[in-house]
């Protein structure tokens, strides 16, 4: 494992900790898209089907369990916890995420590394992760104001994707047979979705002002 991948995994973990902290400390999930969180839970469940069949490292298995458990915990909070549930902005979170799930699954049926149950679900999870942030970005754009923790959550998620791209470049240069088109192309698409957000995040950071996204 190289430093870029480790940095990517850590910023990913940090983003989830920030989100859990926000929900736990404020007992509120305002500004957070439940649809994005549900998509992430599906992403992790579909991707880590290999948890019991392919052992890579203790670190790898541990992180898989953490990602599955934390994503389910967030969805659980937003759906079941009485106070958190009340703060959910249903009217702002209108993205039709079922279409994303269907489209990604169809794409996975066509484009995969191998036509097996696990490989199709792995490809599906890669495609779905690439677009899972869309309901969150749309929600932020619709609400205009972004609170600090939600802004940091999206920032760390974007940083995680950026580090993964550096990781692939590093692996491509140092490993003789590193070619993973599905993951790399989807990863670049996913990172590009954050470009706009990053731009406004940087502006607000530079001016030391509250993050605001244009309508």
């Amino acid at each position: 494992m190289n430093i870029f991948r480790l940095a990517g995994d850590m910023t990913h973990l940090l983003s989830i900790i920030v989100l859990l902290l926000k929900i736990y400390a404020t007992k509120s999930c305002s500004g957070v898209s439940r649809k994005t969180q549900e998509l992430y839970a599906i992403v992790f469940l579909a991707r880590y089907l290999d948890l019991f069949t392919d052992f890579i490292s203790v670190y790898n298995s541990f992180m898989k369990v953490v990602f599955i458990a934390s994503s389910l915990a967030i969805v659980w909070c937003m759906r079941v916890h009485p106070m958190v549930r009340r703060s959910y902005d249903k009217e702002l979170d209108t993205f039709r995420h079922y279409f994303l799930i269907a489209a990604c699954f169809l794409l996975a049926l066509v484009l995969h590394e191998k036509f097996t149950f696990q490989e199709v679900f792995w490809a599906f999870s890669i495609y779905l992760e690439a677009v899972a942030i869309l309901p969150q970005l749309v929600l932020l754009q619709r609400s205009g104001n972004v609170d600090n923790l939600t802004g940091q959550y999206v920032f760390f998620l974007g940083a995680y994707r950026g580090f993964y791209i550096l990781n692939w470049i590093y692996r491509y240069l140092t490993e003789p047979r590193f070619t993973r088109w599905i993951a790399c192309v989807s990863g670049v698409v996913q990172t590009a979705l954050y470009a706009d957000f990053f731009y406004y995040y940087f502006i607000s950071w530079k001016n030391n002002s509250k993050l605001k996204l244009p309508a």
């Binding site: 991948r5 995994d9 990913h12 991707r47 290999d50 392919d54 890579i56 790898n60 992180m63 898989k64 990602f67 590394e113 191998k114 490989e119 792995w122 993964y164 990781n167 993951a183």
Partner: peptide, 10 residues
């Protein structure tokens, strides 16, 4: 040779 390696990333 088109054989998928194990997915070692998260």
């Amino acid at each position: 040779d088109g054989q998928p390696e194990t997915h070692d990333e998260l």
